[in-house]
Design a binder for these strands. Structure first.
Length: 415
RNA sequence: CGGAGUGUAGCUCAGUUGGCUAGAGCACCUGGUUUGGGACCAGGGGGUCGAAGGUUCAAGUCCUUUCACUCCGACCA
C-alpha cells in the first residue's frame, strides 16, 4: 500500500474529549474515528488490525470444531421474554425499537436466545450433537456510561461461540478445549504472560465461570493472581472457601488490575429448556441440551493491545496483528533513487509481505514521527544516504534495534 | 442514574468589568527556500462562538432551559 494513497492521516494533537490512551493513540494515528461516545468507526488501518485479530480467533475456533456463521442484529422480543431477559429490570442495556406495524424488536446485545431458537430447526437428534457455532457480530449495548475508548463501547465487535452438547461430559470436553483455544489466541496476539484464566462468579449452574483477564491499568476489574501456580481469582469471588478449594493462601496472591478479554459460560440445560430446544436420544426419548457460550471482545482486545504495547512515541503492534509488517520509508528525492525505492516496494509486495510504503513528498522528521506513531513492527528506511552504500536501514519498533543491510539482502533479513 | 468539569475554525486553545470587522498555533490552498526526527518566509480560504429563549443601545461574555462530550461513582449474565 502506498501511503500517498492511504485514506486517513495522522494528527499532531489528540482530541480533548478522549482520555483513554487507546482512543487517543488510535485517533491520533488515524486508525479509528469517533462517531459519538462509545461508538467508533474503523478506518483502513484500524480495520486491518481488527481483521488480523479476527483471523487468529477464527483459526483457533475452527481448530476445535467451530463453524462460523452470522446472526442478525434485529431480534424478536418473544424469545427474550421466554427467558425473562426482555424487561429493563433484568437487562438494562437494551436498545429497543419497533416495526412500522408496532411490533417491538430489540437490537442484539447478545445472541444466546436467537441462536438457540434457530437451532430448534436443525438439532433434533442426539446424532446432531455436539454442534459448535460462532460468529463475529456487532453487539449493541445501551451502556449507561461508555468509557475507556474502544474498550467499553455501545457498539463493539464480539466473537461469540455456542456449544450444544448431549451431556455434561461432552459439554465439559469442549469447555476445556475452548479454554486451551482461548489461551492460544491470547498467546498469538502477544498477551500470553499477562492473561489469566480467572475464576469468577458462576451463576446458577456451576460454582465458577471462567474469565480471561489481561493485566492493564486501563482495566475495570481487580483480580488476584499467583503466577507460579497459574491461579487467578476475581475479587468478586475471593473468600476463604474459594481460597481453600483452589489451594492457595491470600499471602501468595498478587492484586492486579485487569481487563476482561474473554469469558466462557456454562448454561447447563436451563436455557434450552426455557426456549424449548431438545433432541431425541437413541430410545426416542426427548432429552435436554447443554449450552455453553464463549466470548472474546474483538474490539476490546484491540484496545487492550494498544494499552499494553504502546510507548511515548505511539503504537507498537505485535507482529501478529500489525496492519502492515513493514513500513518502508523512502527519503529519496531524485528520480533514480525513487525508482530504486519503488523497486524495493514492488519486490516486497510481490513476495506477499504486507508493506506500507511511505512514498509521500514529506520531510524526514514527519515521516519518522508518523512511522513511530503508526507502530509497524519493522521500519525499512531507504534514502540517498543508504543508497550510497547500496543499503537500507532496518529498525525494529519494539526493541529500537537498528542495523544496515545490503539492498540485495533485505528479503533474507526480513524473513 | 448521582457528582464534577468542558463546549469558540477540521484539531488544540486565547478572547479582560458586556463594546467596534472574533483571534493564535497546527492542519489545508498558492508561490518560494529547505530535506535523516513533526522546517522557514510571503500570501490565502475556512466561524450560526453547541442549541433555543431571555436581559441590554450592544451578548462569545450576563440569565434560563436544553443538548453533547470527558472524568469519578453506581451498573456491567
Amino acid at each position: 500500500m502506498r501511503q500517498s494513497h492511504l485514506f486517513t492521516k495522522t494528527k499532531k494533537e489528540v482530541p480533548k474529549d478522549e482520555a483513554s490512551k487507546n482512543a487517543q493513540l488510535l485517533i491520533k494515528a488515524g486508525f479509528i474515528y469517533k462517531e459519538m461516545a462509545g461508538v467508533y468507526a474503523y478506518l483502513p488501518l484500524g480495520l486491518r488490525v481488527l481483521e488480523k485479530i479476527k483471523q487468529i480467533v477464527r483459526e483457533e475456533m475452527d481448530a476445535i470444531g467451530g463453524q462460523e456463521f452470522i446472526m442478525t442484529s434485529i431480534q424478536r422480543k418473544e424469545l427474550w421474554e421466554k427467558t425473562d431477559r426482555w424487561n429493563d429490570e433484568n437487562v438494562d442495556v437494551w436498545f429497543k425499537s419497533s416495526l412500522k406495524n408496532g411490533t417491538e424488536v430489540g437490537f442484539g446485545w447478545s445472541h444466546e436466545e436467537p441462536i438457540t431458537e434457530l437451532m430448534k430447526q436443525y438439532l433434533t437428534s442426539y446424532r446432531d450433537l455436539p454442534t459448535y457455532v460462532y460468529q463475529f457480530q456487532t453487539k449493541l449495548r445501551n451502556e449507561l456510561r461508555a468509557k475507556s475508548g474502544i474498550m467499553r463501547g455501545r457498539e463493539f465487535i464480539m466473537k461469540d461461540m455456542y456449544s450444544y452438547s448431549l451431556d455434561e461430559a461432552q459439554h465439559q470436553t469442549f469447555y476445556d478445549a475452548t479454554i486451551e483455544a482461548y489461551l492460544k489466541v491470547f498467546a498469538r496476539v502477544g498477551l500470553a504472560d499477562d492473561t489469566f484464566v480467572t475464576f469468577a462468579s458462576g451463576g446458577a449452574f456451576t460454582q465458577f465461570s471462567h474469565e480471561f483477564q489481561t493485566i492493564t491499568d486501563a482495566g475495570e476489574d481487580v483480580i488476584y493472581i499467583n503466577r507460579e501456580k497459574h491461579i487467578a481469582i476475581n475479587e468478586e469471588v475471593m473468600n476463604d472457601t474459594v481460597l481453600k478449594e483452589l489451594g492457595v493462601t491470600r499471602e501468595e496472591l498478587e492484586q492486579v488490575k485487569t481487563a476482561e478479554v474473554g469469558n466462557i459460560f456454562n448454561f447447563g440445560t436451563v436455557k434450552c429448556e426455557q426456549l424449548g430446544l431438545s433432541v431425541v436420544d437413541a430410545d426416542g426419548k426427548s432429552i435436554p441440551v447443554f449450552l455453553g457460550s464463549y466470548g472474546i471482545g474483538i474490539t476490546r482486545l484491540m484496545g487492550v493491545l494498544v494499552e499494553h504495547f504502546s510507548d511515548e512515541n505511539g503504537l507498537v503492534w505485535p507482529e501478529a496483528v500489525a496492519p502492515f509488517q513493514i513500513h518502508l520509508v523512502s527519503l529519496c528525492k531524485d528520480a533514480i533513487d525513487i525508482k530504486k525505492a519503488d523497486a524495493l516496494y514492488t519486490q516486497l509486495h510481490e513476495s506477499g509481505i504486507d508493506v506500507l510504503y511511505d512514498d509521500r513528498d514529506a520531510r524526514p522528521g514527519e515521516k519518522f514521527a508518523d512511522s513511530d506513531l503508526m507502530g509497524m513492527p519493522v521500519r525499512v528506511v531507504i534514502s540517498p544516504r543508504t543508497l550510497e552504500k547500496g543499503e537500507v536501514e532496518i529498525k525494529y519498533r519494539t526493541s529500537g534495534d537498528e542495523k544496515h543491510v545490503a539492498l540485495t539482502a533485505v528479503m533474507t533479513e526480513i524473513q
